[in-house]
């Protein structure tokens, strides 16, 4: 069992030639990355506001906690009003549509794409699946 190369490498990519010296330094990178990560958190708070509500609902009862719950609920309502939750809903719906596709529908879809009509659709998928395009 000989040992393969386990290290990730960056052959052909030398950071000094692509970015300035300041970008390659630790302190500059950590500062800007921290800002970047805070922006990432902001993106999450905006687009996943429903998750924020779910998370804070798990907090123990208390004045501050209740206030946090009410703030996050009103934040979520505001975000939803602006339609910022839509991309998430649309992506989920698309995935759910794909998930619910049956073999029959795929068969019909293929026949539509091939423009041969349903009569000629049989045979695109193997016979043992027992699928015919019923439309």
């Amino acid at each position: 069992m000989s040992e393969p190369d386990h290290e990730y490498d960056f052959k052909g990519f030398d950071v000094r030639y692509v970015m300035g010296a300041s970008d390659a330094s630790s302190s500059h990178t950590t500062r800007t990355l921290l800002v970047g990560l805070c922006l990432a958190s902001l993106v999450l708070i905006v687009f996943l506001s429903h998750m924020l509500v779910q998370e804070v609902r798990g907090l123990p009862p208390g004045n501050i906690e209740d206030r946090i719950v009410s703030y996050s609920q009103s934040w979520h309502e505001r975000v939803t009003e602006f339609g910022l939750g839509q991309p998430l809903v649309m992506t989920r719906e698309t995935i759910e549509n794909w998930q619910s596709l049956s073999w029959e529908e795929v068969q019909c879809l293929i026949s539509d794409l091939a423009q041969t009509g349903p009569d000629y659709a049989d045979g695109y998928l193997p016979d043992w699946l027992g699928i015919t395009c019923s439309e």
Binding site: V18, M19, D23, T29, T32, L33, V35, G36, L37, C38, L39, A40, S41, L42, V43, L44, F47, L48, P87, L88
Partner: peptide, 16 residues
């Protein structure tokens, strides 16, 4: 190459 600020935003969008 896109810089850490943009990288952070792309990272956030990727998580969403």
């Amino acid at each position: 190459k896109s810089g850490m600020i943009i990288a952070g935003l792309v990272f956030g969008a990727g998580l969403v």
